[in-house]
């Protein structure tokens, strides 16, 4: 019964992944529509910028949660991790674009000064820069070509997450409870990686055949 539903799930997987992309982009589309039609309040640019940044964080958290979910709770969402990671990258790119185009009105001198002078902006930009190579190599060809190096390269996500966390923490005058929750979640997910070698556990369940990990392991 469980096996049957699992195989059904498998059969539907490509469609579900595409649905995830569609669903994942909805908040951006909706916020843009609201902003363009006067539904985002008195400071629509700031509000749009903030919404996009928040969704980037949420998607980052989901991406980072895939591994612990599998290892601790046997919930295997690895097939959706690439979509989650790429969606996160898209939102970071939207967030940055709104900051440059709508907020700073493409005054590149000001943007450059911001990036160089202000840790708050610096951390945000660093996170984006680190996500670029990850997004670019998030395809089967790169996984095959890079082999073991692909896994090493993609550990950059931890540094990007730390950078994003600092960017978010520095973005307001005082830390709100909402911010504390997001920051706490990211910290837990990063600490999990640091503590993982210390946790005694049974040898990991076999990676699902056909998953990214399985392919990487085969390559290695």
């Amino acid at each position: 019964m469980a096996a049957a539903s699992q195989s059904l799930f498998k059969r539907w997987q490509p469609g579900l992944i595409w649905a995830l992309y569609g669903l994942g982009l909805l908040p951006a589309v909706w916020a843009f529509y609201q902003g363009a039609t006067g539904g985002l309040g008195a400071d629509p640019v700031k509000s749009f910028e903030k919404t996009l940044g928040l969704w980037a964080l949420r998607l980052l958290i989901l991406t980072l949660a895939v591994t612990p979910l599998r290892e601790l709770f046997r919930i295997n969402l690895i097939a959706y991790r690439r979509a989650l990671g790429l969606l996160c990258f898209y939102y970071v790119a939207f967030h940055l674009t709104v900051y440059m185009v709508l907020d700073q009105a493409l005054d590149l001198a000001v943007v450059l000064q911001d990036v160089l002078k202000r840790p708050f902006i610096m951390f945000g930009m660093a996170a984006f820069v680190m996500l670029v190579p990850l997004a670019v190599t998030s395809n089967r060809l790169s996984i095959r070509k890079l082999g073991r190096n692909w896994t090493l390269l993609h550990r950059l996500i931890y540094l990007a997450a730390a950078s994003a966390l600092l960017h978010y923490a520095l973005s307001t005058k005082v830390l709100s409870p909402e911010q504390a929750i997001y920051i706490g979640l990211i910290l837990i997910l990063l600490l999990y990686r640091a503590a993982r070698p210390l946790i005694p556990r049974k040898r990991n369940a076999k990676p699902a055949p056909g998953s990214q990990t399985a392919r990487v392991v085969k390559q290695a």
Binding site: G35, A36, T37, G38, A42, D43, P44, V45, K46, F48, L102, D103, V110, Q113, D114, R118, P119, F120, L170, S171
Partner: peptide, 18 residues
Amino acid sequence: RWSQATERKIGEGGFFGA
């Protein structure tokens, strides 16, 4: 954490008028 050289005027318009 941010520049004080410029400001956004609230209520000036939507996305593109601001």
